[in-house]
């Protein structure tokens, strides 16, 4: 089983990504926690919710939380894909989920995720990170504390720096 970073700790990943559900879902244990693409989830949500294992969805940069936020109670994890690490749409999506729609479960960054982005991701509401498999996770943990000063408000710090000044 592969490892991920969650809440700044390295843990075993408890989830399986199902890339091609039509084909692979039948052979997956019904108690496994699975991640499927949002479009598939929306079409098959009744049967997916009935599974014993948990079900998470994978969002692409073009997916709009505005269009499915009513469903968030039924979604156990949200993974947001970064096709290239220079594609920053996922940051806005995570903030919307976290701040506007109050999503409290795991928000996971997947795809081209590098350590130099982790702190920004965390500040936007991510709490889990599937680093590329060739990366050293121990070293990556240090990146969270590389910069300790944040001018802006974010999902955890509700005040911008000028309202925090003594």
């Amino acid at each position: 089983m592969s490892k991920i970073i969650k809440n700044r700790e390295i843990i075993e990943d408890q989830w399986v990504s199902i890339d091609n559900p039509e084909q692979d879902l039948a052979s997956t244990d019904a108690s496994a926690n699975i991640i499927v693409e949002l479009a598939y989830w929306l079409e098959n949500k009744t049967s997916l919710i009935e599974r014993t294992g948990k079900v998470g969805v994978l969002l692409l940069g073009s997916d709009e939380p505005e269009l499915f936020h009513q469903e968030l109670n039924n979604i156990d994890l949200i993974a947001i894909n970064f096709p290239k690490f220079g594609d920053g749409r996922g940051y806005s999506i995570a903030r919307l989920l976290c701040e506007r729609y109050d999503y409290q479960q795991e928000i996971r960054a997947v795809g081209d995720v590098l350590r130099d982005q982790l702190r920004f991701m965390e500040r936007c509401g991510f709490n889990a990170y599937a680093l590329r498999s060739d990366r050293n996770m121990e070293e990556a943990l240090a990146s969270f504390s590389a910069i300790s000063v944040d001018y802006q408000s974010d999902v955890a710090e509700k005040k911008p720096i000028y309202n925090r000044r003594p």
Partner: peptide, 10 residues
């Protein structure tokens, strides 16, 4: 506000 803004670096 814009310096190391976490949402708008990419």
């Amino acid at each position: 506000w814009s310096t190391l803004h976490p949402e708008f670096a990419y």
